[in-house]
């Protein structure tokens, strides 16, 4: 009963905050970027909430539960990627005064490159929409086990849609404060304290792990250095071009604030959160024996170590972690779809664009619900196929910001084609070089970017 009550309270709070804040939304820019006027600390919380999703919370804990100390590579790889994204890209992106990634590409490299990037971005981010909606449903069924997965996914999708369709980015940034408060309280304070006390501290945890599975105490003892470095590089570089936070970076009041808020969010909240989630998974080796699948270590620990009321609050934090990311990726997909796909075919005034963004959001979430429910394998395939987007974007972003003069439409188009072809062919061939297909595609596209852009570069004619 307490679980159901907490779930209802959380959902009601999200809706009230979102709807009240959302009444301020009047224009398409209010909806997409909160009129580029998000206060510094509000943006810090919002960026953290968008970054922290099912992968960061359940994934990090699961890796350390399954692989021990070696499992920390996921947190370290993702964390370093986020720091690089903040330091290298955030300020520069905000300086461009754009709202979407394709808009940025169109501004510098023309329509054809932007169209290709728009399609790749939508495809890649949509896979995250579907997986986050599925995660939302899965967590709600932990509160109310009598609910079917589809019904739980439907309820959470409707809740997410109500506040985001009304309030867009304005509502998202306000509700993110509640989400991040719950997440920090649960994953960085309550759960570690409970785990440490129950397991007899770090000494007790290491002693228990040494007795049961000593390899889990050795760095690279369970997965090997090659996998750790390859996967760490994968998560680090793919995290550098972060679609989830693009709208929030664009919504900052200035380039300096965008960079500062992004870096504060990463160093103060996101990176420590990843390490804490990993630590909880590591403590789980000592506390939870014989768990069927490592993915459910965090909910299993909540169930085993806490009472009903505290457990319900901790589960609400998991719901909050996924809700922020789900809302964020759905918004990115719908804004990109409205501005960079539909907007290319029909001219729209501000009022119409706002309506199209809202309708797109409902369509994207509806499709995400169907794909997320009926095809968990489709979602994982889409995530794999979404890799070319990252492989193309990382070198193009670096080229745009640090090699701008030489970058040209033809060279970039060749880079995109090579990124897509090399990633997919290598993936279909079964990743023969033992590195991920994303990393292979990234290496190919980076080399191509330098060669193709240099070869296709034409010096601008100087008028007399």
């Amino acid at each position: 009963m307490a679980k159901i009550l907490i779930a209802i309270l959380y959902i009601a709070a999200i809706l009230v905050i979102g709807i009240i804040a959302g009444r301020k939304v009047k224009t398409a820019d209010d909806f997409a970027t909160a009129s580029r006027n998000i206060p510094y600390w509000t943006n810090v919380y919002s960026m953290s909430s968008a970054w922290i999703g099912a992968g960061s919370t359940l994934g990090c804990a699961s890796m350390c539960y399954a692989y021990g100390i070696s499992g920390f590579y996921l947190a370290i790889g993702v964390g370093i990627g986020a720091i690089l994204a903040s330091v290298v890209f955030a300020g520069r992106i905000r300086q461009e005064n754009v709202s979407t990634i394709p808009e940025l590409i169109r501004k510098h490299l023309g329509k054809t490159c932007a169209d290709c990037i728009a399609l790749l971005t939508i495809f890649s981010v949509f896979s995250v929409v579907a997986s986050q909606i599925r995660s939302l449903g899965t967590i709600l069924t932990m509160f109310i086990p009598s609910l079917s997965l589809f019904m739980a996914m439907l309820i959470m999708t409707v809740v997410m849609l109500i506040y985001t369709v009304i309030g867009g980015m304005v509502a998202a940034t306000k509700t993110d404060k509640l989400n991040i408060g719950l997440m920090v309280l649960s994953v960085m304070i309550i759960l570690p304290i409970i785990a440490l006390v129950r397991a007899g501290g770090v000494a007790g945890i290491t002693a228990a792990v040494r007795d049961a599975e000593p390899l889990k105490l050795k760095v690279a003892g369970t997965v090997g250095w090659a996998t750790m470095i390859s996967s760490g590089l994968y998560f680090g570089t793919s995290g550098m071009v972060n679609s989830e936070n693009f709208l929030r970076v664009c919504g900052a009041r200035s380039a300096k604030e965008a960079r500062g808020a992004s870096l504060t969010s990463t160093l103060l909240i996101y990176f420590p959160y990843l390490l804490f989630a990993s630590f909880i998974g590591f403590a789980g080796i000592a506390l939870v024996k014989n768990l069927g699948t490592s993915d459910s270590i965090l909910p299993a620990m909540v169930n085993q170590l806490t009472g009903t009321f505290l457990g319900a609050i901790l589960l609400a934090a998991l719901l909050a972690a996924v809700m922020g990311t789900a809302a964020s990726v759905t918004m990115v997909t719908s804004v990109t779809l409205s501005r960079d796909v539909i907007g290319r075919f029909t001219k729209m005034d501000d009022r119409k664009l706002l309506t199209v963004q809202r309708v797109s959001m409902i369509a994207v979430a509806g499709l995400g619900l169907i794909v997320g429910y009926f095809g968990s394998s489709i979602v994982s395939i889409m995530e794999d196929v979404g890799a070319p987007c990252g492989a193309a974007l990382v070198p193009i972003f670096c080229g745009l910001f640090f090699w701008g003069k030489k970058m040209n439409a033809k060279g970039t188009l060749i880079t995109i084609v090579v990124a897509v072809a090399s990633t997919l062919i290598y993936w279909i061939a079964g990743s023969p070089l033992k590195i991920s297909h994303f990393l292979f595609g990234l290496i190919c596209s980076t080399i191509t970017m330098f060669i193709a852009n240099a070869a296709c570069y034409k010096k601008p004619e100087v008028s007399a």
Partner: peptide, 30 residues
Amino acid sequence: MGFIDYVIIVIGCGIGASVFYHMIKEAVRK
């Protein structure tokens, strides 16, 4: 519970305190 355990708890609580401090400060300023 040893020294390292308290360090972990202090870091977690410190981050939590900082997050809530700025959240309340921003709300009060409005």
